[in-house]
């Protein structure tokens, strides 16, 4: 039951990360998505992959995205 609920939360967070106008909020929502995916890996009995998922994407991915947002600008440019 909690597995399907977390899948639904992951899908909602992914759609929200695409739709949000502020890029910094999108990066933070993406970090939350990575945490939810890590909990899903832990529920599927793969704690190795859960540790790697948290550390690599939720920490270093967020850092690199924040640096990129800091250099390019926070607002979304619509062509």
């Amino acid at each position: 039951m909690i597995f399907e609920f977390l899948l639904l939360v992951a899908i909602i967070l992914a759609i929200a990360a695409v739709e949000v106008k502020d890029m910094l909020y999108a990066v933070l929502i993406l970090g939350g998505l990575d945490l939810v995916v890590a909990v899903l890996f832990y529920l599927m009995a793969a704690p190795d992959i859960a540790i790697t998922q948290i550390v690599v994407t939720a920490v270093f991915g967020t850092f690199i995205y924040v640096v990129a947002v800091n250099r390019t600008g926070r607002k979304e440019v619509i062509e």
């Binding site: 704690p47 190795d48 540790i51 790697t52 550390v55 690599v56 920490v59 270093f60 850092f63």
Partner: peptide, 24 residues
């Protein structure tokens, strides 16, 4: 995590990234 990786979940790669995240 890196030194206890052959008994408990973990290993060299996540341990190294945790060490680098302290510097971060």
């Amino acid at each position: 995590v890196s030194l206890h990786g052959h008994i408990s979940p973990g290993g060299g790669f996540p341990g190294g990234v945790i060490l680098a995240s302290a510097f971060l």
